[in-house]
Design a protein around this nucleic acid. Structure first.
Length: 453
RNA sequence: UCCCCGGUAGCUCAAUCGGCAGAGCGGGUGGCUGUUAACCACUAGGUUGUAGGUUCGAGUCCUACCCGGGGAGCCA
């Protein structure tokens, strides 16, 4: 007999005579001649209540099973006599697949996030982390659906790269040489290899052939960042669009965030409800406001002006030419506008070489999407499509033209205006769930000094 | 990498001025009840992060290190 998943059973229109369910025990409550058993199979947040009575041949063993045990139950789906659930399962066969011993680390009460991180192999079995990883899957699907509906093609950019610097910080080296050897010519690739920090450059090349494309994959940063918003391995969504300027780019950035929020409202109600109730009381109204209002679009200079004119006491006062501090971002999104803000046209000195130089020759067509609580969730730009400008910016930035000959060549043969951005996938999940630490939205986080599991 | 805070039972936390290491949850045993993170009783459970130091006496004070959290920088 084929098993039925609990999310289907709970939506049943009527009783069912014979069903098979498999899952894990969340809690057991004994009565004199029978037990209530809450079972969860991960298909949804909710448990199903199983009634196991003393007519079962192995009832003595059932009365001893603990939280965490895996079981298989055959029986009838019947209306529940108790309050709190519509349906329950009257067990007719109850197989204990494996009984969890009494040292199972998860109790029925709430655990701290810090403790659960030390048992990352078991935390998906909790309500909160089960919901987080289900919603991560659903958001992932929503992103693919969004791009498909908007005529984008999904492209796979390399994870191993020979480019030395893509403008985004320290990289992990990849080698097959034993420690201490540095005869790179004998290494696997015959030259230095790294883990990618971004698929952008390669995505640009595909955009200049397929039109609108996106990548969605893992990226790696070897920065010694110890914050709740940074991980050494994280997933990034990177669209790249041909014949597209920075305005279109901002439109798309705003559109995708709203789309995903609306998708989650429509499809992930149960899990979202958990986050609204237990993780962040202000979550629902914040998400509604993000989905329902226009994002502010603010040139960098005006952003600095706003901060200069405000009475806010900043630790580092805003000044033209230096990047916005975290406190500035928070001020703009949480106090001044109280909604997402897209800051654009940054000074060229603080942005990477590939961003398109504006006519003022001082700023570049960069744009960052800042959201309340998280800060920067998207960074993007119109790309420099003019060969001469790109070349001189690369020289200015101290890059080796030889390493990027292929990138430069895309500006030699039928170059075209194009734009794109990087959306931090984990930061998007944080925004949508209200979870405040990036280590809790990725099942097995990699951060400095942490690569267990 | 820098600044701040913390580390006590499996988990979450108490422990007054430096003076007998405790509670709830979880576990075990028994009871009770169509129960709802059930309830009641009993019970086991400790190298107080590690190494040194001060002291008659250290969970508590000092030093170093390790680990965790928050903030900053880097960014997504």
């Amino acid at each position: 007999m084929k098993r039925t998943k609990i999310n289907k059973l709970l939506k049943s229109e009527g009783p069912i005579d014979d069903i098979l369910i498999k899952g894990w025990i969340r809690t057991r409550r004994d009565s004199k001649t029978f037990s209530f058993i809450e079972m969860n199979d991960g298909s949804c947040l909710a448990n199903i209540q199983v009634i196991a009575d003393d007519k079962l041949p192995n009832y003595e063993d059932i009365r001893k099973i603990n939280t965490g045990s895996s079981v298989s139950v055959r029986g009838k789906l019947v209306p529940s006599q108790g309050k709190g659930q519509k349906w329950e399962v009257q067990a007719e066969e109850f197989e204990i697949i494996q009984a969890a011993p009494e040292d199972y680390p998860l109790q029925k009460k709430r655990h701290s996030d810090e403790f659960l991180r030390t048992i990352a192999h078991l935390r998906p079995r909790t309500n909160k982390y089960g919901a987080a990883f289900r919603i991560r899957s659903d958001i992932s699907y929503a992103i693919h659906r969004f791009f498909r509906e908007n005529g984008f093609r999904y492209v796979h950019t390399p994870i191993l790269t020979g480019s030395d610097c893509e403008g985004a910080g320290e990289m992990f080296k990849v080698t097959t040489l034993s420690a201490g050897r540095n005869d790179i010519q004998n290494d696997f690739f015959g030259k230095e290899a790294k883990l990618t920090v971004s698929g952008q450059l390669e995505a640009e090349l595909l955009a200049l052939a397929l039109g609108d494309v996106y990548t969605f994959g893992p990226t790696f940063r070897a920065e010694n960042s110890n914050t709740r918003r940074h991980a050494a391995e994280f997933w990034m969504v990177e669209p790249e669009m041909a014949f597209c300027d920075i305005e279109d780019n901002m439109d798309l950035a705003e559109k995708i965030i709203k789309y995903v929020i609306e998708y989650v409202f429509a499809e992930c109600n149960q899990d979202l409800e958990l986050f609204c109730r237990f993780v962040d009381k202000g979550l629902k109204s914040r998400l509604e406001s993000i989905a329902g209002s226009d994002f502010i679009r603010l040139p960098y200079n005006e952003a600095v002006n706003i901060m200069k004119k405000s009475n806010e006491k900043f630790e580092f006062p805003a000044s033209y030419g230096s990047d916005l501090q975290t406190e500035h971002e928070r001020f703009l999104t949480e106090k001044y506008f109280k909604k997402p803000v897209i800051v654009f046209d940054y000074p060229k000195e603080i942005k990477p070489f590939y961003m398109r130089l504006n006519d003022d020759e001082k700023t570049v067509a960069a744009m960052d999407v800042l959201v309340p609580q998280i800060g920067e969730i998207i960074g993007g730009s119109q790309r420099e499509e003019r060969y001469a400008f790109l070349k001189s910016r690369m020289i200015e930035s101290g890059l080796s033209l030889d390493d990027y000959w292929w990138y430069l060549e895309s500006r030699k043969y039928g170059s075209a205006p194009h734009s794109g951005f990087g959306l931090g996938f984990e930061r998007l999940i944080m925004l949508i769930t209200g979870i405040t630490n990036i280590r809790d939205v990725i099942p097995f986080p990699r951060t400095p000094k942490n690569i267990e599991f």
